[in-house]
Write a protein that binds this DNA or RNA. Sequence first.
DNA 1: GGCTATCTGGAACGTACGGTCAAGTTTTCG
DNA 2: CGAAAACTTGACCGTACGTTCCAGATAGCC
Lengths: 193, 193
Amino acid sequence: MARVREFDTEAALEAAMSAFRRKGYEGTSVQDLVDATGIGRGSLYAAFGSKEGLYLAVMDRYREQYAVPLIELLDSGAPARELIRSVLLGVVDEIVRDGTRQSCLIVSATTERLPHDPEVAGRVRATTSSLENALTEVIAKGRASGRLTSTRAPGDLARFLLTTIHGLRVMGAINTDRGTLTNIAEVALGCLD
Amino acid sequence: MARVREFDTEAALEAAMSAFRRKGYEGTSVQDLVDATGIGRGSLYAAFGSKEGLYLAVMDRYREQYAVPLIELLDSGAPARELIRSVLLGVVDEIVRDGTRQSCLIVSATTERLPHDPEVAGRVRATTSSLENALTEVIAKGRASGRLTSTRAPGDLARFLLTTIHGLRVMGAINTDRGTLTNIAEVALGCLD
DNA sequence: GGCTATCTGGAACGTACGGTCAAGTTTTCG
DNA sequence: CGAAAACTTGACCGTACGTTCCAGATAGCC
């Protein structure tokens, strides 16, 4: 039929994600994206339509790559406290690994783009609410089995944990000391009973 | 000696802050700032030097206007738990009042500008650490008086609360329901003992 | 081996950006 | 009242932006 695509879409999205996480949406120029992905402008536009389209594709990848595995972990049936601890410490790990240079895509999408782009808003809401639901279920099970003793509604606790995760990512942009972030996570864990 | 300045610097900074909070740093053009403040480009540049200079002046005003009163409240000597509750509920109030349209200047400065602008980084660190110190002191006093029973280090609890505040501002950009946010704040308050 | 369809790279387009500047205005002081 | 100093306005500057387009390359199909 025709010439076959030369570049790897997943690798391109990964590179674009890294660029967006480093400089934000408005701060990343199309030239930055061309440089980061190694793909010509023409191909980039043929594949993704626009800068916004590429950003949305990056958000979709973020969800598949980071949120979905997290949710699968939460659905694994392991004890609630251990699950939640490993989620929070996993976030701390990511922050320490990324350093100050790369901020969380969801947080920056939320503050920078959500109010102005309904497509972004939809993706942020979908990703956060699926995580919220998974957390709620884990907490409800943990309480049913007597492992978690907090009397607060599981949904409130889940949204509190989500808040902590977002807060950690902001804190991680200011200070990436693992011990500090770990202690914060431990305090939050203490709220579950 | 010379012609007197016509515009009110504080009012201009307030208008510029509103613009930056609505659209972020990169998303706000100088023309947006001219429109928001009602001041000509020349006057704006004579007064603040550059777009970045205006942004830094806005950050300084943010600190004086929002962080300093909060710290003074914390230093007022009232009982620890009531103080911290009123700080958290005050944040919720602000979020509900601002709605989805205006996000927190500190959070957006942190994610968008902190890695690329040392001046921004310095101001973010100064503001957050003075708030952290005030919280730490309140918690230490509360524990000394037996009102707070948590065994965790006051500094860790303070940084946890700071994390909660940042997290709330992110959550507030996604969902501005007062009840939801208030419940999150109440869960966090429960971590203090 | 053409034919067609798709992809590639980069030149080119119009626009909007941050920043500058000069001409005019308002003030104070001698 | 005139001179000097500071402020205001908006036209203007060079540049960088997001997007489009096209000529050339590469694949499958007859």
